[in-house]
Structures are given as C-alpha cells and as structure tokens.
Design a protein around this nucleic acid. Sequence first.
DNA 1: GTCTTTTAAATAACCGATTGTGCAAATTAG
DNA 2: CTAATTTGCACAATCGGTTATTTAAAAGAC
Lengths: 343, 343
Amino acid sequence: MTKKQSPVTLKDLSKELGFSTSTISRVLNGKGDDYRISKDTQDIIKKAAQDNNFTPNQTARGLRLQKSFTIGLVIPDISNPFFSSIARALENECRKSGYSIILCDSEDQTKLEIDTINILKNRNLDGIIVCPVGIQGKHLIDISETLPIVIIDRYFPNLKLKYVSSNNYQGAFDATIYLSEKGHENIGCIQGIVGTSPNDERIRGYRDALIKKNIKIDESNIVGGNYDIQTGYIETKLLLAKKNPPTAIFAFSNTISLGALKALKEEKKRIPEDVSIISFDDHPYSDFLETPISSITQQNELMGKIAAKLLLDQINGTGNYEQDGILLPTNFTKRKSVNNNIK
Amino acid sequence: MTKKQSPVTLKDLSKELGFSTSTISRVLNGKGDDYRISKDTQDIIKKAAQDNNFTPNQTARGLRLQKSFTIGLVIPDISNPFFSSIARALENECRKSGYSIILCDSEDQTKLEIDTINILKNRNLDGIIVCPVGIQGKHLIDISETLPIVIIDRYFPNLKLKYVSSNNYQGAFDATIYLSEKGHENIGCIQGIVGTSPNDERIRGYRDALIKKNIKIDESNIVGGNYDIQTGYIETKLLLAKKNPPTAIFAFSNTISLGALKALKEEKKRIPEDVSIISFDDHPYSDFLETPISSITQQNELMGKIAAKLLLDQINGTGNYEQDGILLPTNFTKRKSVNNNIK
DNA sequence: GTCTTTTAAATAACCGATTGTGCAAATTAG
DNA sequence: CTAATTTGCACAATCGGTTATTTAAAAGAC
C-alpha cells in the first residue's frame, strides 16, 4: 500500500513534450528569452506545466542551488504567548517572501538550543532566528560564521550579531517612575534570568528610576531569577513575609506576574488596595483579571516582522545597517493595579 | 563577503581518507559489516567523521531517499494558546523521533490553508498535520492520497482521515447538565463555526442535555458562528438585550468567552450573580479572572502527542488502527462563574 | 555557392548523498 | 599449483532539478 504517487517531474514533462529538461527548466524559470527559446516552445512548455500542475521539487532544487528557502526558528516555548505572537508575525512575513519556517522549541534549555541548532545546520537552511535561552552566545557566533542569523529578545551587546528587542531599560524606567509618583517607595522587583540583556536592562531602568526619585534602593527587594510562574509565586510569598513588605511589585514577565497573582490571592492581598502590581508583557486576558493589570507592553508582532526583514536582508545581501540591533519602544498600558500610596 | 564556508561532505572525507564515498556512507550508516568493510577501515572512517564533525547533508539525503524527516504543521493561529500548546507537544514528540516541523499559519482562511499545503507538497514532506479551517475537507482527501496526514480538532466523520480530537459532545453535555442542575433553564449558547465537527458535537451535547432535563430548547438562545472575540462580544450583547435574557452563557471557545467577558463587563453584569458563564477551553489565566471561569478543558498536549504518533505510525507503516479517529475525554474545571439559580 | 553568424535546443556536469553491481586481490579448496 | 571462493572496496547510476558548454540547423553575408 505505497501512497506516494510521485508528482510530475521535469523528466516527465520532457518525455511528454519532447524538449529537454534544461529547456523546460529555463522556460519555467523565466530564462527562456536569455537562452533564445522560441516563443512557441515557451508557450507549449508553460501550458503543459500548468496543465500537469508541475512544481519543482524543492529538495532537488535546494541541493543544486544550495538554498532551501527555509528558515529555522528556535524559541524557548511556543506556548508562551509572547513567543507565539512573535512566531506568528515571523511566519507570515517569511511566507510572503517565499520562505518556510522550521519550528524548534528549545524548552528553555541551552543544551537543547545547541542540539537543535546543530540539527538545523545540515538542513541547508538559509538563515536562522533565535530567541536565545542562556546568557552565553558563543555557539551563536559560531553559527553566524556560516549562516545568517538574527536574535530576538535576548541579545548580546558585545557579540556582533543582528538583533531586535524592546527598549527594556526605558520600559522599566517608566514603570518604576510611575510607581514612585504614585507614592510607592518600597517596590519589590521580581526579575527574570540574571545576566540576560533584557533582564539586566530592566534592572538598570528600575534602579535609575529610583535613583532619580531619590529613593534608597533596598537590595532585598530585588529578587527572582527565572521567567516562570513558580518564581513569581515563591518570590511574592517571600516578599510579603518581609518585615517591611513592599507596597508594590514589579513583575518582569507575564509568567512571573501570573505566579505573583496566585501568591497574592492566597495571602488574601487585594490589588491594588494592599499591594500594587505592574507587569512586563501584556496579555489578552489582562483586561479581565480580577484587577486589570497595568503592563508594559512589547510590540511582539513588530519584533517578529523586523527580525524577518533583518534576516532576509542578510540572506539577500540587501540592507546595510550601521547598527547591529534595533530596540523597539515599549508602551505602558495603564489599568487598575496600581494604587495611590500617598500618606 | 560570502559566508557559507561549506561543511564537510562525503567527498571531502573520501579525499582525505582515500576511501570511496560509498564505503564511507555505508560505514556511517551502520552497513559496514553487511558490505564486508574491514574493522580497521570502519574505525578509521568513524574517527575521521567524528574529528571532522561530519553530518550528512539532509537535502542530498532527502533527495536520494525520497524522505525529508520533516513534517508539515498547518494551524489556524499559532498565537492562540489552544493551538500553540498542541504545537509544542507535537514538536517535542516529533523531534524525539528525528523529525522537524515546518510551521504554517493558515490565518483561519481556507484559501491560505490550501495554498500553504500546496507549497508544502513539493518539499518532500514525510507527512502533514492539519488543524483544518473550513467545513470542507476535500483538499485534505486529495493530499491524503499522496501523503500521510492527521487531522487535529476539526475532523470530518465521513472522510476517511485519521484524526484526534476531544469528546466535544460529552464535554458540552456535562457542562449543560451542570448548568441545568444549578437551576438554569435559559442558557445562551454562543457557538463557533457551524458545520465543523467540534462545534456541531457541542451543540448536540447542549441539546441532548436540555432534552434530558426536560427543558424546552429556545432556538433563539443558540447564536454565534465564529470562534473569535468579536463573536463572543456581539452575541453576548444581543443575548443580554433579549426580553428574557439567559441566566447563563455557554461560550464555545476561549476567544468567545473573552468577548463575552468584555460585553458582560460593559453591561455591568456581575458573574455569577447576574449571569453565569461556562467556557470551552481552559487557559492559564482562568484562575485569576475577576471571577474564575468554570471551563471544559481539553487535553491539548495529549492531542499533540497522539497526533504525532498517529502520523509517525502512518509514515513508518506501523500501527494498525481499526478506528479512523481518537476522541479524548474533556475535563470539567469547576471555578466560580456559575451561580445557583434556584427560585 | 561557400562561409559566417544567429537561432534553437540538446548534452552533460553538478549539487551530496545512497546503493546495486562489479572487480581485483587474498584466501581457501581440491 | 590451479580453480573456486571470500574479502574489501570502488564504480557508476540515481534522486530531480539547474546551468555551462556544445551542436545542428537555419539565416544571412559576400
């Protein structure tokens, strides 16, 4: 019960029409005139290709042209809405240019990321887009020597790799200023992975804002170390258990804030009456939460689109950017999770 | 500034070692003994392959073997958590078996779905997994004649295609029984796309439950017709405007319930005091909504895993299933969105 | 009418792997 | 010591396209 009734090949057409495969290939690639294939012949070939529903075998084409019209996309977790919205925009943009996407989920593990990239390497990919997991990017540099690559979200300022990310510093700075102007001086900050650019930039924004507002930084308020629900949950529990628990919490991702919400609920803390909260990353459900959460929103779709363009530019040799990376501004969506804390 | 410093090929090894490519290929594919390649030679070749970090060019391999170790995944919207969680499980499962996934977003459009599948066709894919968009599956039948295929979520009972989906009938039946036992007899039902199997099964479950409970079915309570936020919003607005507005709403997807929540909020209806609500599809945020929403949860990860297995079985010619499809039970997660309506 | 140029297309090499077949050299058999 | 067998590997075809080079016929030049 073999299924593969093989599709029409150039050879099939050649047999049917009596023209050589080279002639047919040329005509169908629009090079008929260059090679002085007569108008009549061209018409016959084009019609036959249509009638037989011929499309060239991409594998064979890829082998000969050393090009696969395929791009690798490596992300930590496709089920995270932050990444999936990026993936969606990326896929759309690439498809428009005739490229397909091979999706690889690195499950937030550097080892898997490296393994995955190695698997992709011998697939003749035309380029690769990575949301890196770890704080080291050496393996990405290695790749970049043989393959166009673009980094999304977590970039490596000292490694010459094209990237697109958000202006994490400004976003965190603005959010912290906002909190402080609402009277909060004791602000818990639950961060993601220390050493990664977005996280460290956010921390820098947080610190600078407090400094600007002449608020003494309480180092014990800076906690966390992972972008997951559990981190948000645990750290919130601990923050609330402090002698002077913070009056506001700044969660560095949608997952962290989800954990924080859980902990706050358990501890019967009302938002914002007892504790205010701001979250990095927006979410479709943000508006419908018990208390709608004010968020720093990133332009995920735009990031995806730009990443695609940066990569296609590298692939095609077009585009000539002075900068390695592009930082997109964040937006602040004010909802109801921050209270006035004026004494 | 050409980047592609081409990787090591069989020919390179051949030149270096003085053995023919066929010998090397055989050794590296574990067929050395079959072809009486001496132990010494095998060791030399294996070591050289290691040292040179050789991995066979998948494109060439694919061309020769008529196999790409690649699977196409076509889904309506990767940014919808329902689909992205399926995609994640699928990708994981396939990777374990050495297959990569080409991701295609059909943007909920039948035309794009068909276009996309056509593009995939000449990529020598080993199989394809589709969450179909339309209510017609003819093009999928066409595909199935040349390529292993598995359908997720929306299946076509009359077309002989392998599928995995939820037991939508039972889920909807249980939810409706639950509502009626809470005293609700006037239950608005906002459905998705009419004519698709999951939707129609849910409707059947809804109807059967009401019949069983001897509740007269008010046809004007069955509204909607699309799985999106707008449908949920509009239909809820309209339901609330009725002479006898329903005391409970059954939303057929996470997107629909999101729209319903928005409308309820606008109309200042409290959940569940004024209106009860149940949603098909769970969501990580469900617990943290203003009123946590009781939901019929589907086993998305399991669906993804099973789909992968069904496809790999077809590809490998293993597995021999009597049934075309598999329906997974749903779970009912009781939260706080349903009120007692006992007069 | 012969030589050159143009036209129109075919041949063959190639991309990098896999695989059926062939063929020396080494070994064993008789 | 010759024939048969086994050992160990190379040759060449193949997958389905693309492309540099050739070739044969037709047209034009002198």
